[in-house]
């Protein structure tokens, strides 16, 4: 399989990262967002990141120039219909995503593969309203933040995804130095499901708002478990509200399975507005 061109829909954190990584693989990337100013900001920020990496000696000037030439902004009027792949990385809302895919289905050629970077919506729910031919060329490609650095791509098989499509993308990503984990279409896929108890169990060990105990748990899991960050500092970094919302979503999808149940401390933190680093305070203080 050859990938010459990619359309990335959504210029938020994930969309930017995905666009940057594909451009670094000599793939022509178009970046689209409902807000044109966001696309411009995203491209400026990606270009600045390449300049920094060039200054650090990670890329040559020629490489950086080539990457910049590969990346362009687009709007709904100038999408290239013959793009090889579309990756959607917009807000986690089924209705909005479905609208985007239906619109794109009317623009793109029948050969274009559709993919979603969703972390919580079933791939088959996103594909179901599209024609069969497109559904067979629809899969999940779940990147991890920051996408240019994190090696993993979860390649998710939707109900209609052709086996050949999954194996082609697995080969392509592997050839481009990504680590691929193939999985079926199930809530949270692999990482967001299996990692839930890194947080959930740690919350139960602590049980109450107790900074000393949280520090101890973070320290133990880093020093004895070899984890790069402790659960409480990581929740503060991700945003306690975001982490709580993923937990709730997985818990609901598994019909309130106790293994995924949120902890009341998470809810208390969200209700109090202490959401982590972004609010200068979460489980720890940052002021």
């Amino acid at each position: 399989m050859t990938l010459n061109s990619v359309l990335v829909v959504g210029a938020g954190t994930m969309g930017r990262g995905i666009a940057q990584w594909f451009a670094q693989q000599s793939v022509k990337v178009q970046l689209l967002d409902s807000n044109e100013a966001t696309v411009k900001t995203a491209i400026d920020s990606i270009n600045a990141s390449w300049d920094k990496l060039q200054a650090k000696g990670k890329f040559s000037e020629a490489e950086t120039n080539k990457f910049k030439e590969s990346l362009s902004a687009c709007n709904w009027e100038n999408i290239k219909p013959d793009t090889d792949l579309v990756i959607e990385a917009i807000i986690e809302n089924l209705e909005i995503k479905n609208d985007v895919f239906n619109k794109l289905d009317g623009i793109c050629n029948s050969e274009t593969v559709f993919a979603s970077n969703t972390s919580s919506i079933p791939i088959s729910s996103l594909a179901k309203s599209l024609p069969l031919e497109r559904r067979e060329r629809f899969l999940g490609l779940h990147f991890f933040n920051p996408a240019p650095i994190m090696k993993l791509v979860e390649v998710i098989k939707g109900h209609w995804s052709k086996e050949e499509l999954i194996s082609d993308f697995t080969t392509w990503f592997t050839e481009h130095k990504k680590e691929v984990a193939i999985c079926n279409d199930s809530p949270g896929f692999i990482v967001n499901r299996v990692a839930r108890n890194f947080y959930g169990e740690s919350l139960r060990v602590v049980n109450h708002y107790d900074t000393e105990k949280m520090k101890e748990v973070d320290n133990v899991l880093k020093k004895c478990g070899g984890f790069r960050m402790g659960p409480f500092e990581l929740m503060d970094l991700i945003g306690i509200d975001i982490n709580y919302s993923v937990t709730e979503s997985v818990w609901n999808s598994f019909y309130n399975e106790p293994r995924f149940a949120p902890h009341q401390l998470q809810k208390k933190m969200v209700d109090s507005g202490r959401l982590g680093k972004k609010t200068n305070g979460g489980f720890y203080d940052y002021e």
Binding site: M150, L152, E154, E179, V191, V194, F198
Partner: peptide
């Protein structure tokens, strides 16, 4: 693979 490369 997912747990090693997705969340280190």
């Amino acid at each position: 693979t997912a747990m090693k490369f997705g969340v280190n």
